[in-house]
């Protein structure tokens, strides 16, 4: 009895793992297909610009407001802790490095996935459910080239820009709390930050990180939309999977 139950549980774990691996494999194959169908996106860059507007520009408010508040929290808590060691003027360094190296790319990617990623999935999923993708195929136009690739590249280009804006707004938030409200010396705040933050190691690495997140989020969002069951439940499930994945 116990052996049977253990075997069943192992089988369930194995089955779940296989499904996850299969899903990852399918997403990577889909990403490859998207890349091979990207020529149209670069030949007609207006298609990508339109997607940068929908994915990037329309995410600006949520990204900038979140960045500002994250920076404010870092400024407040960082200064509280650092003053115990008499180095509250280093709060600028703490805020900048936390944002540029880690929080900027990661939190911006999470916000991007939940706002723009889910919107991309829902849009492509609904296009499938209402036979718009089939109609395109019947017009001898490849939906991978005309619908998927521009949205993918729109997301990939938007993501690093949004992450940089997130970090910039966070630093302004940290400055507002630590310098303007609490009274940390502004010269020390900026000069220590300038001295400690290295362009190649910190900023460039942060940008590369956000670019990788952009590729992952955009690939998952377009894949989930394209593979969604053409029903209301299918689109609902696909948008949820985009955010969770």
């Amino acid at each position: 009895m116990v052996l049977e139950s253990t075997l069943r549980n192992i089988r369930l774990v194995g089955d779940g793992t296989l499904k996850i691996v299969e899903r990852i494999g399918a997403t990577v194959v889909f990403l490859g297909l998207t890349l091979t169908q990207s020529a149209t996106s670069f030949r007609r860059f207006d298609l990508v610009i339109r997607e940068i507007f929908y994915a990037g520009v329309q995410s600006l408010i949520i990204i900038m407001v979140s960045g500002l508040f994250v920076g404010m929290v870092l400024g407040l808590q960082g200064r509280e802790t650092l003053q115990n060691y008499g180095s509250e003027q280093s709060v600028g360094v703490l805020v900048a490095l936390s944002l540029v190296r880690e929080l900027g790319p990661v939190v911006a990617a999470l916000l991007f996935a939940s706002r723009a990623g889910s919107a991309i999935t829902a849009e492509i999923g609904l296009m499938k459910a209402t036979e718009q993708l089939s109609a395109m195929e019947m017009m001898a136009i490849n939906p991978m080239a005309r619908v998927v690739a521009p949205r993918f590249w729109g997301g990939v280009i938007s993501m690093p820009l949004l992450a940089m804006l997130f970090s910039a707004m966070g630093i302004i938030g940290g400055f507002l709390v630590a310098v303007v409200l609490i009274g940390v010396d502004d010269g020390a705040f900026w000069s220590q930050m300038q001295a400690a933050v290295d362009f190649r190691h910190d900023i460039a690495n942060g940008i590369i990180k956000s670019l990788v997140f952009g590729i992952a989020v955009s690939a998952i969002a377009t894949f989930e939309g394209y593979e969604a069951s053409p029903t209301a439940e299918g689109v609902y499930g696909a948008t949820t999977r985009t955010v969770v994945s």
């Binding site: 296009m127 209402t130 036979e131 718009q132 089939s134 109609a135 195929e137 019947m138 017009m139 001898a140």
Partner: peptide
């Protein structure tokens, strides 16, 4: 397919 046209059940307009 460039020589075909198709009208879908509910139009499938973009």
């Amino acid at each position: 397919r460039r020589r075909l046209g198709m009208m879908f059940q509910f139009g499938a307009l973009f």
